[in-house]
Each structure stands twice: as structure tokens, then as C-alpha cells.
Design a protein around this nucleic acid. Structure first.
Lengths: 338, 338
DNA sequence: TTGAAAGCGCTAACAA
DNA sequence: TTGTTAGCGCTTTCAA
């Protein structure tokens, strides 16, 4: 399997075998209708017989853009973005596009570097997560000279197209729910609000809505933790308990945090929701399986992927759609934990 | 941000501004040492000032291969492969490579299609998961004419290079552990063994090693479930309990299955491990957080990513390394669930 | 409907 | 050390 052994079949080989010109093969393959029935047949047969596979690099150089779509998410190991990526891939692959995937670990400088690298591929579109970008990212995005889609957020001003939901509203759902359920003293445990603006927005939403719904008589504390893993949830529970006297409920910026807290509560003999109510965010698969099942807010993680893919597809056919905003909804999923 | 507005800076622009030839710019950028100190400075300044970013498509057409590396995994939402992908990305991005990521959902026909599509990009290497491929995949892989790395398995014959661990051995660890812990009547709950050969190999390993270690006096049943989610774990527990009288322990083909069973056991008032021991596979973050913490087998998920990336890097410099096999180890992590 | 030919923006011989 | 030049394998005018 050493490189450089066998010569790859190219379009000119097909042309020769089919007895037509190179240009005709290109047309027959790209726009079958534009070629006579007979030649089309001959060309397809020849291509088949030779096992011809187009060289995408060459095609992209000759064409205006490559059928490559750059997508940048904070993390690949985060189930939220993984679902979005899976859905995007499926829709876009069916149309002949390939995804260039990058992740920056919530580091905006890395995001800028990845965008620059992607731009060098002349992609058909670039998708980034969130509305918060460095000056360099914005410059690189504009230099890429292709449609740009921001996703997973709605609270802010998009550079171009936007597909997402309001994280503030997601938080407000939780805050309102907690107030209505009668939890007046609450805490919000949020992972790295300084680095994750969407988590921070959700936390703010919880606080605002809770204050409104309790008519200002409720108490709420914001507690930040340094990660998204279960261990941080347990830690958050501990902090919340010591910082807030008579704590009645905790909202978390992510389901895994909430599950971690649920485990910790179990260890401490704290009954959920009788002693303490717990509310998550994400509606990950695990949320409906815990004991008790987790009350949470469901973001449209798969829907975002599909909507982004569909937007790009429409957009490439009709450039007028630049600046389009697709609003998706979150949903309050009330189970037994709070 | 409409496409086609501004003309992109290209290498010839840099050459003109720096007052040198195109070729010199190419060399200065690719092999700085091969150009005189003075010109290098002038060229770098010019490139900087113009905001030059190389067109990778053009570079790849002129060169032998593109700095693209195709990676195909079964699923993106599976934490196992996500970790591998994250590590691969980090190592490879630092060397100027981009990853083309595809997923086939354990469907070998889809795998073949993705490999073909990737091959069209003239990638520097292609990475696939497992050793089980369709005839079409093998053909497409060989037509791609680049290094091929198979990963996440070791039980079988590689096409070229291989980076992984023995899934059979991973299962044997669990089976042996269970026998030694005195669990003579066990069940193995395995997700889609027909579609996931690695899970099937692990299940076989458990059965074999358990039979050996109990001197054939143990009893073991294989139970298959139709998914990898927590719900399937609960279902598996139920099936195992009805199918195996006096069941003492269950091994699962994945941690999420085991966690689902743990939740279900809790609901049923089955004490773990007193009434029933549970053993997982994966050592996902959650495994160390459950109540009780989960005994499991840890596969080298991050290590695989790093090792694959490093192999590719070395390989591209030194083609002799074709057919290299990198063996990684699994580890038995004994906690309290079994 | 088909063919000829001019690039796309680089890399890599080869010459100087 | 630097420049000249011939492609890489396609797409896309333009002419026939």
C-alpha cells in the first residue's frame, strides 16, 4: 500500500476510452442532461469500467469553492455538539459535501487559528459555535469569503446567518419553573462562565426569571465550577450547600453537573427533590434514566445540525439568504428531580 | 459577506511586493532555511502586510498529497471515539494537517462510501475503525494510495498499519475478574454483537476467561441488546435476571449499559454488589462517580488518538514504517460494583 | 451538442 | 541562492 505505486484513473482516461473530449466527460458527470443520451451512456460505462473517481482537489481548484464545509465547535467530547455534528454530516454528505471539523476547547485564540486554517481550503461555508469571537476570527471569517453560520446562540448580533436558540431563555425556563414550584432559595451552579458565554447566559436567565417570578422575595446565588464533568457537579452541590442557608433547589448549567450532584446527594443522604430539588440543562439520554429522573431544559441539539445544513444548502443556491436567522426553541422537561 | 467580492491575496502578489519570484516565495514559506536571510525577511514582511494565506487546494493539486487526513469512526456521539478524535486533531493540527471526519453508524456499506469520498481528496492518510471492512472499502482504501491505519482493534489481520488493543483481552480481564471474585453464574449483556465486532469480541472474551477461571463449573449467558444507551442496560438487566437463575454478576459491553443497569437495580431494590455485581467497559468519567463506583475495563481511548497521529507523522517521513503495529493495553479498574 | 483551450494558484524540476 | 517553466486534473468559456 505504498504511495505512488499505481497511477490513478483520471478524467482524460475516461474521455479516451469513451472516445469523446475531456470537456464532454466533465459535463456528462456534472450535468448529465446537457449531453446526448448516447454519449452519456458511453461515458458512464467507461467511467464505471475504469473505476474513475473524480479528484476533488483538482475540481475545487478549477471551481470557485471546494465542497468542503468547515465546522468549529468548542469540544468533540461534549454530547451536545456531537449530536449537532452527526446530523450536519448526514445531511451535507448526502449532497456531496465533506466536513472539516475543528474544536477549540473554549479558547477564542484557537478558534481564530482554526478559522484561518479552514479558510485556506476555500470552503463552501464555515460554521462556528456561538456569537463570541475574537477580532482575528472575524477577520479570518470575512477573508474566507464564503457564507458564515453561527450556531447554538441567539443572544447577540450575528456576523451573517444564525441558527440557534436563546440561552438566556433556556435559563429563564428553569428559573421560572423553580419559582413556581415554590423554591425560593436557590443556587445556580455554572461551569466556567468566564469562558462559556452561553452557560453564563443561561445562569443569568435563571437568576432573572427567578427574581421576577418570586417578586424579588427569593434568594439566589451564582456558583461557578471549573469544568463540565460529574465531579464538578458534586463540588457545586457542596459549595451551594455551604454558601446558601436553607437551600431548596439548584439549577445546573449542564446535565452532567446535575447528575454528579444527584450522585453526591445520594451519598449524603439528601433526598431529591424532598430535601433539595435539582434541575439540569441538556436533556441528555441520562436525564430520563436517573433516580429520580432529572427535570431539565432541552436545547434543540439535533435540530440545530439539521437546520444549519439545510440553511447552507439553500444558501448556496440562493445567495440572497445571507443574514438569515433561524430561531429554534428550548423546552422545559419536568420530571421528578425538581 | 457575499462570495466573490474581494480578490484573495495570492502568492504572486507577495512575490511582486517583495520583489522576488513566485518560486522564491514558495520556498521561503515552505523551507525557510533554503532562502537567504534577507529575502526571507522581505518575503515574510510582504506576506504579513498583505495578509497572505496560502490556498491549500492549489498547493495540494501541485503536490503529491493533500494535508488532509480522513478518519472514519462508527459514531461521533460515542464518547470513546470522540476522545480519540480530539487527541488526533490536536496532534495533527499542530503539524498543519486537517481532519476529514466521517461516521458510518456501524454500517459497513456506508463506511465504503465514505472511504471513496475521502479518497477523492488525495489525503495524506486514511484512518478507519476496526478490522472488519467490506470488499468495497478495501478496494477504495487501496485505490486511495496512501497510508491506511486501522484502530481500536488488534484481533485480526490489518491491511496496513494498526493501532489498538485486543478487545478479546479486554473481555477476558472482566471474565477473569468475575470468576476470581467468586461469581460463578454470570451474564454478558452485549449491544448489537452482530454489527459491532469489537463488542462481540469482548463478550466472547468474558465468556472464555470465565469458563477457564471457573474450571468450567461456572455458568454464563450471552444476552444481546439493541443499543448502547442506558435504557438498553436496564433492559439487559431485566433479561439477564429472567434468563439466568441465581445470577450473581453481569458484564456489559459498555459503561453506559452498566450505569443504566445500576439505575434499574436501584429502582428494583437490588443491592450492588451484594445481590448482583455489575462490571462495565470504558471507564468513562461517569464510572468513577456512580453509587457504588463502577468496576470496569479501561481501553486506551485517548492514547489511541495520540498513537495514530504519531504513527502517521512518522510514517509520512519514513514510508518504511508501513505495516507497523502499535499495541496498547487495557486495564482492569476494580471499584465497588463488582 | 460537442470540442479546443485557457486557466485555477500553487509545487518542483531544472537552469542560471 | 534564485528564477523560469512546466505541469497537477479538473471547470468553463468560447467556437464550431
Amino acid at each position: 500500500m505504498a504511495a505512488g505505486t499505481k497511477r490513478r484513473v483520471r478524467m482524460s482516461d475516461v474521455a479516451q476510452v469513451a472516445g469523446v473530449s475531456l470537456a464532454t466527460v466533465s459535463r456528462a458527470l456534472r450535468f448529465p442532461e446537457s449531453v446526448s443520451q448516447e454519449l452519456r451512456g458511453r461515458i458512464e460505462t467507461a467511467a464505471q469500467r475504469l473505476g474513475y473517481a473524480p479528484n476533488r482537489i483538482a475540481g475545487s481548484l478549477a471551481g470557485a469553492h471546494s465542497p468542503l464545509i468547515g465546522v468549529i465547535v468548542p469540544s468533540l467530547t461534549n454530547a451536545f455538539f456531537a449530536t449537532t455534528l452527526e446530523r450536519m454530516t448526514v445531511t451535507l454528505e448526502a449532497e456531496g459535501f465533506q466536513l472539516l471539523i475543528g474544536h477549540h476547547g473554549y479558547d477564542l485564540a484557537r478558534e481564530a487559528r482554526i478559522v484561518s486554517a479552514f479558510a485556506g481550503w476555500n470552503p463552501a461555508a464555515i460554521v462556528v459555535t456561538g456569537l463570541d469571537h475574537s477580532r482575528e476570527t472575524v477577520a479570518a471569517l470575512s477573508a474566507a469569503d464564503c457564507p458564515v453560520v453561527e450556531m447554538w446562540d441567539l443572544d447577540g448580533h450575528p456576523l451573517d446567518a444564525l441558527v440557534g436558540f436563546s440561552n438566556t431563555e433556556a435559563g429563564r425556563f428553569a428559573g421560572r419553573h423553580m419559582a413556581r414550584a415554590g423554591y425560593d432559595r436557590i443556587a445556580v451552579v455554572c461551569s466556567t462562565p468566564d469562558k462559556d458565554p452561553r452557560a453564563a447566559a443561561r445562569a443569568r436567565g435563571v437568576l432573572e426569571a427567578h427574581a421576577e417570578a418570586t417578586g424579588g422575595r427569593g434568594k439566589a446565588a451564582l456558583i461557578s465550577v471549573d469544568g463540565r464533568e460529574l465531579g464538578c457537579g458534586a463540588l457545586g452541590l457542596d459549595k451551594a450547600l455551604t454558601e446558601v442557608p436553607d437551600l431548596r433547589a439548584i439549577a445546573f448549567s449542564g446535565d452532567m453537573l446535575a447528575v454528579g450532584a444527584l450522585f453526591e446527594a445520594d451519598r449524603r443522604g439528601i433526598r431529591v427533590p424532598e430535601d433539595l430539588a435539582l434541575v439540569g440543562y441538556g436533556d441528555l439520554d441520562i436525564a430520563s434514566n436517573t433516580n429520580p429522573p432529572l427535570t431539565t431544559v432541552r436545547p434543540p441539539r439535533g435540530e440545530i445540525g439539521t437546520a444549519v445544513a439545510e440553511h447552507i444548502l439553500k444558501r448556496l443556491k440562493d445567495p440572497d439568504r445571507s443574514g438569515e436567522i433561524v430561531t429554534l426553541n428550548v423546552e422545559m422537561v419536568v420530571r421528578d428531580s425538581g
